[in-house]
Simulated scan of single mutants.
Amino acid sequence: MSGTPAPGPASTVLAAGCVLWRRAPDGDGVEVCLVHRPRYDDWSFPKGKLKRDEEPLAAAVREVLEETGHHCAPGAPLPTARYLVDGRPKEVAYWAAEAAGGAFEANDEVDRLLWLAPEAARVRLTQPRDRDQLTALLATLPLT
């Protein structure tokens, strides 16, 4: 059926998340939070779909708390990720966010969490496209 248009426009899936960071415990630089989602067996930043009428920044902060157990102080907006999931366009708005206390507990969506130096996080990220947000985060932080 090549060349046959889809029945109506594919609605874009809207999501939001944060590149969560903290000052490294040894005081040397920063660490970035990555979450492991067993459903996809991937390492990524905390993110999720917007609820009806939810603002993207509010969704990003909610998703960080739900997936990591950490509160956060959102900062600079980061590049929006745009890609296809099962043929549907998806847009994920991201913000830099400093961790502001909390504790991780494994849940249905996220079974592991890592705090990594930026270079280690860059290697661990499953999707190469996520490196754009990491690069943008580092450019916004005077500490690195």
Rank of each mutant, 00 (worst) to 15 (best):
M1T: 11
P5D: 03
P5V: 00
P7A: 13
G8K: 05
G8S: 10
P9V: 03
S11W: 14
T12I: 12
T12V: 15
V13G: 07
L14P: 08
G17D: 12
G17L: 04
V19D: 13
V19P: 10
L20N: 13
R22P: 09
R22L: 07
R23Q: 13
A24H: 15
A24K: 11
A24P: 14
A24D: 15
G27Y: 09
D28C: 05
D28A: 10
G29I: 03
G29R: 05
G29V: 04
V32W: 10
C33S: 06
L34C: 08
L34V: 12
V35L: 13
V35S: 14
V35K: 12
H36Y: 10
H36S: 05
H36W: 08
R37Q: 13
P38R: 10
D41V: 01
D41C: 03
D42P: 06
D42G: 11
W43I: 04
W43M: 05
S44A: 14
F45G: 07
P46Y: 09
K47R: 14
K49I: 06
K51I: 01
K51R: 15
D53A: 10
D53S: 11
D53E: 15
E54Y: 12
E54I: 05
E55G: 05
P56Q: 03
P56K: 01
L57S: 04
L57D: 09
L57H: 06
A59Q: 05
R62V: 01
V64S: 12
V64T: 15
V64G: 13
V64L: 11
E66W: 07
E67N: 11
T68Q: 10
T68E: 14
T68I: 04
G69L: 00
G69E: 11
H71Y: 13
H71N: 11
C72N: 09
C72Q: 12
C72Y: 10
C72I: 04
P77D: 03
P77F: 00
P79L: 03
T80H: 07
R82S: 13
Y83M: 00
G87P: 04
R88F: 13
P89W: 07
K90I: 01
K90C: 11
A96M: 00
E98C: 02
E98W: 05
A99Q: 15
A100W: 13
A100V: 04
F104L: 06
F104R: 08
E105I: 06
N107M: 03
N107L: 02
E109L: 08
V110D: 12
D111E: 15
R112C: 08
W115G: 01
W115C: 02
W115K: 02
L116R: 01
L116D: 07
A117L: 07
P118H: 01
P118G: 01
E119H: 07
E119C: 02
A120G: 08
A121W: 05
A121N: 03
A121G: 03
R122H: 08
V123D: 14
R124S: 00
R124C: 00
L125I: 00
P128N: 02
P128C: 00
R129L: 05
D132F: 10
Q133W: 04
Q133E: 13
Q133M: 08
L134Y: 02
L134F: 02
A136P: 07
L138Q: 09
A139Y: 05
A139D: 15
A139S: 10
T140F: 05
L141D: 08
P142M: 04
L143S: 09
